[in-house]
């Protein structure tokens, strides 16, 4: 305020430095507000990372549990396109902040409520991509499978599912990116994730905020790369593009 008027605060108070952020990650610092207690450091970083992974995995599992069977069923039957695709489009319009805030304020804070809220974001992409992936399998292939005497379940498991894996997986990856990104604002719902470094600036300081942003970005990228690797493992050899 005093510096240049108009609410300008001296630079070193407002802005973080990369060095400061790394220091925050690796060694505990004295907190800005609470005298005596320390914040940051590897122990806290690991704890919050585990929390964020935990709610992400829980929410992803719940989304898969609901969306995958539904997508496979509707895709195989060829019904419910409006629901499956419409839900996917509608899901994108849900404002994450409003969803988390609403769940926390109306139903309460905690892991369970957060998991449900995050699953709401995970279900649409998985459902839509599963449906579309199964539907776009060549009908002649499916007919041929039936022709050689496969049961409906075998058609789904041995023909449609393997051919749909790339599409289904891009849905799962989309859901994961959504969920882990939104889990960053989970502290609003009472679950401390890496986002706490970001949201509670007055506790962790500017370096903590930057450290949180770096860690969240790395976590999301690590998840995305792991899933991309898993997808490569699960994709049938015949489907892999020879040269892109």
């Amino acid at each position: 305020m005093a510096a240049g008027g108009g609410g300008v605060i001296p630079l070193h108070h407002t802005f973080a430095s990369l060095g400061g952020a790394f220091e925050f990650i690796f060694s505990p610092q004295a907190s800005n507000v609470t005298g005596g207690t320390t914040v940051g450091g590897l122990d806290q970083v690991i704890e919050l990372t585990v929390n964020q992974l935990e709610v992400t995995v829980l929410a992803l599992a719940l989304s898969l549990f609901i969306a995958l069977p539904a997508g496979l069923y509707f895709g195989h039957r060829g019904t419910g396109e409006l629901l499956a695709v419409g839900l996917g489009n509608a899901g994108r319009a849900i404002p994450e902040l409003a969803l988390i805030a609403f769940m926390a304020a109306a139903i309460g804070v905690g892991v369970l409520n957060l998991t449900i809220a995050l699953a709401v974001l995970g279900i649409p992409p998985i459902l839509t991509n599963t449906f579309v992936g199964i539907r776009q399998v060549d009908r002649a292939t499916v007919d041929a499978a039936r022709g050689i005497g496969m049961t409906e379940f075998e058609v789904l498991r041995k023909v449609e599912l393997p051919l749909a894996i790339p599409t289904i997986f891009s849905g799962i990856r989309g859901a994961t990116v959504n969920i882990v990104a939104t889990a960053t604002i989970a502290p609003l719902a009472g679950v401390l994730t890496l986002g706490d470094f970001i949201i509670n600036r007055n506790v962790y300081g500017a370096d903590g905020v930057l450290a949180g942003a770096i860690l969240v970005a790395l976590l999301a990228l690590a998840l995305e790369f792991s899933l991309a690797g898993l997808q490569r493992l699960l994709t049938s050899k015949g489907l892999k593009p020879s040269t892109a």
Binding site: F15, A16, S17, V177, V180, A181, T182, T184, I185, G195, I198, V209, L210, G212, A213, I214, V216, A217, A220, L221, E224
Partner: peptide
């Protein structure tokens, strides 16, 4: 573009903030 898309928006905001 895929990597940029994967980075959560909230994180991106605060990576840019400095």
């Amino acid at each position: 573009t895929g990597i940029l898309y994967t980075i959560p928006s909230v994180a991106f905001f605060f990576l840019l903030e400095p």
